[in-house]
C-alpha cells in the first residue's frame, strides 16, 4: 500500500471503523439487552431442520465455491449451528465443499459439533464431503445429490456464482425448503426468484450474532452499524461539499506534467493559479477529488538514496515461467 495511491483517508476511515467495532465488542460484553431486528431467513433455519426430520431426508448445506476466507468461514460457522440442531434430532446432513481448505475446516468443525453433542458415530463419510474444485463439476455433483437423495432442506450460504440457480431450481423442483444468502450481489436476484428465504447483503454476516446472541458478535454488529452511520454521514457531507464547491469559481487548478528528475521521466502534478476564462469548478477541482487523488510532486522524486550493489542480479527465469519460491 502506498498512501499516495488513494490518499490517507481510506486508511483513516478503516481504522475508525475498526475502532468502532472493537469499542462496541468491549461495551457489549457486559450487556444483554442489545436488540437485533427479526431476520425471517434465520428464523426459518430450525423449521427447515424440523421438516427434514419429519420427512427423514437429509439437509444439504453448501458454503459456496470460494476459497477459505471470511465468507466461507462465516458460512461454516452458521452451518455448525445448523449441524448442532440436526445432530440433536438425528437428521442426516450433507455439507458439500468445492475447496479443499474449506472442506478440511468444515470437517473439523462439524466433527467437533457431533462430539460435543455426544453422537460422534452419526458423522459418516458423506456428512462433510469434497465434491470437486471445478465450478461446473461441483454444480453437477451437488445437483445430482439434491435430486437423488431428495433433500428436504437446502442452505446455500457463501460465495456463489453461476451455479447458484442450478442448485436453487433443482431443489425447488423437488419441493425442498430453501434458505440462501450470498455475498455476491449478482446472485441474490436468482436466489430471490427460486428460494423461500434469502439473506441479503450483510444479513449473512449478522447470522451468527442472531443465532447465538454472543455478546462479542452482537457488539461487533453494533460496531458495523456505527460504521454504516459514518458512511451515510460522509455521503451527505460529500454531497453538500461538492454541491457548494461546484458552484464556486475556480481559482486554482491541478496542472499535470512530465519532468525529468535524476535521469528519469516522471509524471508530477501541482496546484497553479487558474488564469483562463472565469468558470465554475469541475469535478476534478473539488476538495473531495483531491482527498482521493493525492499529487506526486517533483520533490518526492528527489529523495537521495544509496545505489544498490551491482552483484545482486536479476532473478533467473523460472522453469515454466511461474514465480518459484
Amino acid at each position: 500500500m502506498q498512501y499516495l495511491d488513494s490518499g490517507k483517508l481510506g486508511i483513516l476511515v478503516t481504522l475508525l471503523i475498526v475502532a468502532f467495532i472493537l469499542f462496541n465488542i468491549a461495551r457489549a460484553k457486559n450487556r444483554t439487552d442489545l436488540f437485533i431486528r427479526r431476520i425471517p431467513g434465520l428464523n426459518a433455519l430450525d423449521d427447515a431442520i424440523g421438516r427434514a426430520t419429519e420427512m427423514g431426508r437429509p439437509v444439504l448445506m453448501v458454503p459456496g465455491i470460494g476459497g477459505l476466507d471470511a465468507v466461507s468461514v462465516q458460512a461454516v460457522t452458521i452451518f455448525s449451528n445448523v449441524a448442532r440442531t440436526a445432530a440433536q434430532f438425528s437428521t442426516p446432513i450433507r455439507l458439500c465443499c468445492a475447496d479443499a481448505a474449506v472442506y478440511t475446516v468444515a470437517q473439523e468443525v462439524i466433527r467437533d459439533v457431533y462430539q460435543q453433542e455426544g453422537v460422534p458415530e452419526r458423522m459418516d463419510a458423506q456428512t462433510v464431503q469434497f465434491v470437486s474444485d471445478r465450478q461446473f463439476a461441483f454444480a453437477a455433483g451437488v445437483q445430482g445429490m439434491i435430486l437423488r437423495e431428495k433433500v428436504a432442506a437446502t442452505f446455500l450460504l457463501g460465495a456463489f456464482y453461476a451455479e447458484s440457480l442450478i442448485f436453487a431450481e433443482s431443489a425447488n423442483s423437488i419441493g425442498a425448503i430453501q434458505v440462501a444468502g450470498s455475498t455476491q450481489n449478482t446472485q441474490t436476484p436468482f436466489f430471490i426468484a427460486a428460494c423461500d428465504y434469502v439473506l441479503i447483503g450483510d444479513e449473512f454476516y449478522a447470522a451468527s450474532a442472531y443465532i447465538t446472541r454472543q455478546p462479542v458478535l452482537v457488539g461487533s454488529l453494533l460496531g458495523q452499524d456505527w460504521g454504516k452511520m459514518l458512511i451515510i454521514g460522509s455521503i451527505f457531507a460529500g454531497m453538500l461539499m461538492n454541491s457548494v464547491e461546484r458552484n464556486q469559481m475556480v481559482t486554482m487548478t491541478r496542472q499535470e506534467s512530465t519532468v525529468e528528475v535524476r535521469g528519469g521521466q516522471e509524471s508530477v502534478a501541482e496546484m497553479v493559479p487558474y488564469e483562463g476564462e472565469p468558470r465554475k469548478k469541475n469535478a476534478t477541482e473539488t476538495t473531495i477529488y483531491r482527498l482521493f487523488h493525492p499529487m506526486y510532486t517533483e520533490s518526492m522524486y528527489q529523495i537521495e538514496r544509496q545505489p544498490k550493489p551491482e552483484e545482486n542480479p536479476e532473478p533467473a527465469p523460472a522453469e515454466g515461467g511461474e514465480v518459484t519460491l
Binding site: 536479476e314 532473478p315 533467473a316 527465469p317 523460472a318 515461467g321 511461474e322 514465480v323 518459484t324
Partner: peptide, 8 residues
C-alpha cells in the same frame, strides 16, 4: 519487470 521477467 519482475512479475513478467521470468516469462519467455
Amino acid at each position: 519487470k519482475s512479475a513478467w521477467g521470468g516469462r519467455r
